[in-house]
Structures are given as structure tokens and as C-alpha cells.
């Protein structure tokens, strides 16, 4: 690499390897490049000393320089301001700011109370996390980056597509005649396992239905949740756990769940 130990031009040559040492320190080198520079450090006292100093400085910064923590009220202030901004864009007749603030803090308080109440049992805490994952996955899919792996309204195309991608075969049905059109499927990772996601459309609304083999006994009814304005339903039937999420009204989502069951 750099002949640092030679008498002349020591500074120059090591100065050029300084960049390499820093790239190595910052994890920007490939495995083979890293191995090469590590071998060099072992054989070059100058680079070894320089690298130790760089490492020391990095660890000093990370240990001694504390992050500035945002005051607790800042998140609330921002959420209120965002809701106000969203409301003023969607409703031309302006709502008075104070009302928005009051409404937003009430909402926040209510969701806080809900969260605290739901934390009471570990079961519901686990459900809570699952609901969050389901909702995040739904929202991500609507961002347009990854809604469908297999776009098809034909259940005989979608079902076999999952073969070899999952260790189970999900139930795939199209309900076009009832107003819930199957638009396709994709594989998702939820609750630490790969699951099937089926996407249905009703008018301009999408439903993500996640399903995987259940580890708990069948449960006769549905569980319903509301998060950030989305309805989430879950049930267990024939050894399969299902979660459906959409911005559809509760009634319509229930109708869908009935059909799928």
C-alpha cells in the first residue's frame, strides 16, 4: 500500500493513506479493502498510531458529546401545527386556530389514554405492536413504492404466485361482484415472519388483508381497532390469523371481513 516506513517522503505517503484510514474507520470500505488496510496498519507504526488517534477521537465524540434532546412540548406543538396546516388545505372556510388546538389536544389526550389503557396487559401490548406493523405496512404500500408484487384480479393467478415464497398457501378469493375487487398480492414481513398480503379495492379505497397460520386457537368474533383514522380488524378462522386494514368505514370493512370468512 503506502511505503510509510521508507525514510523519505514518509509524511506525504502517509497523508494519502489517511483518507483510506478514515474510510476504514467510517465503515465505507469493502471487506477486501478493509482487510488490506488492516494488514497494512499492523505493519506500519505510523499508520497504526494515526489510526488509533482517529479511533480515539471518534469514541471521545460519541461518548462525550451528548445529543440535544427536544423538549416534550415540541412534538405536540408540531402536531397541532400540522393538523392545522392539513385542515386549512382541505377546507377553504378556515376553522379558528384555537378550536383546532383544542381539538388536537383532546385527540392527543384521548389517544394517550388509549395507549396507556392498552398497555395494561402484555397480550394487548403485543396486539398493539402487531396493529402498528399492519398499519405501517398498509401506509407504506399506499406510498406507491410497493403495493403489488403480483398485480392480478384473477384468484387463480394470485394464489399459485405465493407457492415457494411462503410456507403456507393463503386463501385467495375475488369479491368483485360484491364490490371488493381483488387487485393483487405481495409478500410482507409482519410479526417476525413472512406473511401473505392480499390487496382489494372498493371504489377509491384500498384494503390490505394480511394472513398467516395462527399460533392461537380460533376466536369466534372480530377485534376492531381505530388508528390515525384507519380501521383495523383482526380475526382467526380455520387456523389462519387475518388482519384487514383500510380507510373504509367500519361497516364496509366488516362486510368485507364477513365475505372473506
Amino acid at each position: 500500500m503506502c511505503g510509510c516506513q521508507s525514510e523519505r517522503g514518509v509524511g506525504m505517503k502517509c497523508a494519502s493513506s489517511r483518507h483510506l484510514l478514515e474510510l476504514h474507520l467510517d465503515g465505507e470500505l469493502s471487506a477486501s479493502e478493509s482487510a488490506e488496510i488492516e494488514e497494512h496498519i499492523e505493519n506500519c507504526a505510523l499508520c497504526d498510531a494515526l489510526y488509533r488517534r482517529l479511533e480515539q477521537l471518534q469514541s471521545d465524540i460519541r461518548k462525550q458529546i451528548t445529543r440535544h434532546t427536544a423538549p416534550a412540548k415540541l412534538q405536540r406543538t408540531i402536531q397541532v401545527a400540522l393538523r392545522k396546516a392539513a385542515a386549512s388545505e382541505s377546507q377553504p372556510p378556515r376553522v379558528r386556530w384555537n378550536w383546532m388546538a383544542v381539538a388536537a389536544s383532546l385527540l392527543l389526550f384521548a389517544s394517550l389514554a388509549l395507549n396507556i389503557a392498552s398497555l395494561r396487559s402484555r397480550d394487548s401490548a403485543a396486539r398493539d405492536i402487531l396493529a402498528q406493523e399492519v398499519l405501517s405496512s398498509h401506509l407504506r404500500s399506499l406510498m406507491g413504492t410497493h403495493l403489488l408484487d403480483v398485480p392480478s384480479s384473477d384468484q387463480h393467478t394470485v394464489k399459485p404466485w405465493f407457492n415457494g415464497k411462503l410456507s403456507f398457501s393463503p386463501d385467495v378469493k375475488d369479491f368483485s361482484s360484491q364490490g371488493f375487487r381483488l387487485v393483487g398480492g405481495r409478500v410482507e414481513y409482519i410479526g417476525n415472519r413472512p406473511v401473505a398480503a392480499l390487496i382489494y379495492q372498493r371504489r377509491q379505497h384500498f384494503i390490505n388483508l394480511f394472513t398467516w397460520p395462527s399460533s392461537s386457537p380460533s376466536q369466534s368474533g372480530y377485534s376492531e381497532l381505530k388508528r390515525s383514522g384507519y380501521n383495523i380488524m383482526s380475526w382467526t378462522e380455520d387456523g389462519m390469523t387475518c388482519w384487514a386494514v383500510s380507510d373504509l368505514q367500519t361497516g364496509e370493512l366488516e362486510q368485507f371481513a364477513q365475505l372473506y370468512k
Binding site: 393538523r83 392539513a86 388545505e89 405501517s136 401506509l139 390515525s228 383514522g229 384507519y230 380507510d247
Partner: peptide
Amino acid sequence: EKTRLAVFEQ
């Protein structure tokens, strides 16, 4: 707007 806000918050 409601959906946009929800996605933004997430």
C-alpha cells in the same frame, strides 16, 4: 389531506 397527514405522521 387526512391520509397525507397520517402517512406523514408515520
